[in-house]
Amino acid sequence: MHGPASPGWLLVVLCAATGAYCLLRMRSPVEEQRRIAGGEALMGFGMAAMAVPAAVATPPRWAWLAYTAVFGATAVRALWTARTSPHHLHHLMGAFAMVYMAGVMAASPGHHGHGGSGVPLVTGVLLLYFTGYVLRSGVRLLPLAAATPGGTRTLGWGDRPELSQACRLSMGIAMLAMLVTL
């Protein structure tokens, strides 16, 4: 994405670290958690690659088209799986946002952003969605007193709900940052 180099590198590190943690989550014994973690790992690494500052490496137009194809396929898969799990609706929105950003970058490789015409409607809708998602995810991380039925249970790294929620929050914040610099 286009913007200052330092925040761009911070986005790269945040997204790559989130993608790496999602790979760890894929070791969960629960199949649905592995599937969700795989999609989130793809999203994290894809966002890291897209966030590399343009001053360092400006991808050729075909790279943006490849991003569009990969995340378009991801969006179709998320649409298909959304019928059984509402969480996949968020994956659909994330994949759509990636397709949109890659499409904008493929269509306008010579200039940064949308010009002086203001925020386009799609960008505005995505900004509103991800702002709401980040706020909701942040609230869900607030500590609550909860009783665990059956005593305590040791959870593996792939099954820690607070870590996976923090992962989703990080990617939501990164998506907001990328949309703002679009």
Rank of each mutant, 00 (worst) to 15 (best):
P4D: 15
A5N: 09
P7D: 08
P7N: 08
G8Y: 06
W9E: 07
L11S: 06
C15N: 09
A20H: 09
Y21L: 00
L24C: 10
R27E: 11
E31F: 14
E31Y: 14
Q33S: 11
A37F: 00
G38Y: 03
G39F: 06
A41M: 04
L42E: 00
M43I: 15
G44A: 04
G44I: 00
F45G: 04
M47C: 06
M50S: 05
V56K: 10
V56Y: 12
T58V: 12
P60M: 06
P60I: 05
P60N: 03
W62L: 12
W62N: 09
W64M: 03
L65C: 11
A66I: 14
A69W: 09
A69T: 11
V76W: 12
R77V: 14
A82H: 01
R83A: 12
S85G: 10
P86E: 11
H88V: 09
H90Y: 12
H90A: 14
H90P: 01
H91T: 03
M93F: 12
M93K: 08
F96H: 08
V99F: 01
V99G: 02
Y100P: 01
M101R: 02
G103M: 01
G103C: 05
A107M: 15
A107D: 15
S108Y: 13
S108P: 00
G110C: 09
H111Y: 14
H114L: 12
G116F: 09
S117L: 13
G124H: 04
G124T: 01
L128K: 11
F130M: 07
Y133T: 07
Y133I: 08
Y133L: 13
V134H: 03
L135E: 09
G138A: 09
G138W: 05
V139Q: 10
P143W: 02
A146D: 07
P149W: 10
G151V: 07
R153W: 10
R153P: 03
R153A: 15
W157E: 01
G158V: 02
G158N: 05
S164F: 04
S170P: 07
M171S: 03
M171K: 04
G172I: 07
I173H: 02
A174D: 07
V180E: 07
T181C: 13
